[in-house]
Amino acid sequence: MALDKNGIAQRIAQELKDGYYVNLGIGIPTLVANYIPDGMEVTLQSENGLLGIGPFPEKGKADPDLINAGKQTVTATSGASFFDSALSFAMIRGGHIDLTVLGAFEVSEKGDIASWKIPGKLVKGMGGAMDLVASAKNIIVATTHTNRKGESKLLRKCTLPLTGVACVKRIVTDLAVLDIVEEGFKLIERAPGVTVEEIKNATEGFLFIDGDIPEMNI
């Protein structure tokens, strides 16, 4: 069965390592914070200027001066720091962030990502996404395998305006874990109960299958 959003987040959390500094994008990526293994020290960065994002505040305790990059009220962990947005992007551009997790409208088999603009429709802006994908050491895309119309989001070539080129390393969807390799999307794991055939049908770009594909361990 295809994973739900929490399942995707749970699988991505398995990529975390002790001591990691991580930037989580808006949407599914934010949920990864709920699955950080006990005893593992992972510091979450927010590009507006916070290192050490804590849980959402208790009811009635929200501080308007303390928000994340999604403009949601948050708390700061013990040991957190605040800084301006230029220094925040020095952390990102300078390669100090170990892992970036973000959502996408489309990903290409070359690792291009489109995540910020639908021409003629949606004007939101790229925010920090272009900076993050251009500079992070490791980028994981968290997304559903297909869009609401059932069309594949894993394409030969992106059709929407790009956020970055040849930058995505790994994709975790509701159906599979895939790596970007020279051949295209390399199938690494299947969601529990999902067949290779189903993944093939949902992938428009080239799907590279090497040997038996294990199920995710979640």
Partner: peptide, 19 residues
């Protein structure tokens, strides 16, 4: 205003804008 062209808009990556 953006879509109708009334407002001129230059969107920058956030870190680029900050820098």
């Amino acid at each position: 205003q953006f879509l109708s062209g009334e407002l001129e808009v230059e969107l920058n990556p956030q870190g680029t804008l900050a820098e």
